[in-house]
């Protein structure tokens, strides 16, 4: 335990880097996924095409995707964030599209009957009702991104993976375990807190409808 106690500042910096990496990637992912999800929600052929393309990306193992990005983007944070964004698209686009599609038809008709335009209907009816499903997608995405960001330390993106790789290189068990445990705790904490948000949103949405 002595190394951890003496170097908690090092761990805190790595944890901060990890969170910034994931938060940046998540923000970019959402900016891309929302238009794609909204656009494909009621267009089955486009939806299938989007799921196939993003599904192929999702299947590529993290280390392989980094290896394939190196010739084009080199090392560092840029290829790391690119990979994190590419992994997020399948789940985010799918959940945004499904969330919108599952809004009951009579609510859509009611909105149209009240003279809502398409944009108004989207903002006031469809997206609020889709929110629990969208947050469920965000939860899976964040957990995936935290995991992939750990491997990203291998291409010099920093974060908690750095502690693990340093520990491996120095053959220093305590450092390896500290990195591994902290990464796991971060993933579990993100999962639990977003699960909580998801549950509250579900309760709120079912009360309203």
């Amino acid at each position: 335990m002595s190394w951890i106690l003496e170097n908690y500042d090092l761990l805190a910096v790595a944890l901060g880097e990890h969170i910034v990496l994931v938060a940046t990637a998540l923000a970019i992912s959402l900016v891309i996924a929302f238009p794609l999800g909204i656009w494909t929600a009621r267009r089955p052929a486009l939806y299938v095409a989007a799921m196939t393309a993003t599904g192929v990306l999702y299947t590529i193992p993290a280390l392989a995707l980094f290896a394939l990005l190196i010739p084009f983007m080199g090392l560092g944070k840029a290829p790391a964030i690119t990979a994190l964004v590419l992994y997020s698209l399948l789940i985010l686009v799918r959940n945004i599209a499904i969330g919108i599609r599952e809004v009951p038809a009579e609510l859509i008709e009611a909105a149209d009957g009240m003279g809502y335009g398409k944009g108004q209907r989207l903002l006031r009816i469809e997206l609020p009702l889709a929110l629990p499903v969208i947050v469920a997608g965000v939860r899976i995405t964040v957990v995936t991104q935290i995991a992939v960001a750990t491997v990203a330390a291998y291409i010099n993106a920093g974060g908690l993976g750095d502690i693990i790789f340093q520990g491996i290189a120095q053959d220093f068990g305590e450092k390896i375990v500290a990195g591994a445990v902290l990464t796991s705790l971060l993933a579990i904490a993100a999962d639990e807190s977003l699960k909580h948000v998801e549950r509250r949103l579900r309760a709120a949405t079912s009360e309203r409808s």
Partner: peptide, 10 residues
């Protein structure tokens, strides 16, 4: 929920 790299090195 545990990241793959963490599980492998733990």
């Amino acid at each position: 929920t545990i990241p793959s790299l963490a599980l492998l090195v733990a």
